[in-house]
């Protein structure tokens, strides 16, 4: 146990490192906005609708100590019923379309949908074919897109901020 504690003490708080400082104004603005719109932490449900797994790796990175996403009042939840936002990746495969629609329907209003990565935004390298529908917006309504293959964690943060900032028809 003492080894573990010593390691924690030795490493210290890396969230204050330079790249995180770059994200700091973003995070503060985001935190403020989330409080105003949702009145509590922003709960995100991720849905892989056909991704190559690249975007998932970068979504994971958001949780590392450098970006410290939870510190900004954003957390990932296990059920769409607990979520305010869906983070959808991948060109939507035809085999995932129904699951994506059901996940969307299970998410309570008001909800926001963020299409993450080039594939989710426009179909990407996979495009449209016998097995893929392509962009997420062709399956469920999308509020914001984040481009990149895969998008960097900072681009993801910006995308979430943009989505929270975008007013939606039908929701307050």
């Amino acid at each position: 146990m003492w080894r573990l504690l010593r390691q924690i003490r030795r490493v210290g708080l890396v969230s204050e490192a330079a790249p995180a400082a770059e994200a700091a104004p973003l995070l503060n603005a985001l935190q403020e906005k989330i409080r105003r719109v949702f009145g509590h932490a922003l709960a995100i449900r991720h849905v892989d609708a056909g991704s190559c797994n690249g975007c998932e790796l970068e979504i994971h990175a958001l949780g590392n100590p450098y970006y410290n996403l939870e510190g900004a009042g954003i957390r990932f939840v296990a059920s769409p019923r607990h979520a305010d936002a869906l983070l959808v990746t991948g060109p939507v495969s035809r085999h995932m379309a129904e699951a994506l629609r059901r996940t969307y329907d299970a998410t309570p209003d008001p909800k926001i949908v963020i299409a993450v990565g080039d594939c989710a935004a426009c179909g990407g390298v996979f495009g449209t074919g016998y097995a893929t529908i392509g962009r997420v917006a062709d399956v469920i309504p999308v509020d914001a897109t984040v481009s990149g293959c895969p998008p960097t964690p900072l681009a993801l943060l910006q995308g979430i901020l943009q989505a929270v900032n975008t007013p939606r028809a039908g929701t307050s």
């Binding site: 892989d48 991948g90 060109p91 995932m96 495009g127 074919g129 016998y130 097995a131 893929t132």
Partner: peptide, 11 residues
């Protein structure tokens, strides 16, 4: 499995 079948070989 097969949910993320994207038709890569055809592509």
């Amino acid at each position: 499995l097969g949910y993320v079948h994207k038709g890569i070989e055809k592509r």
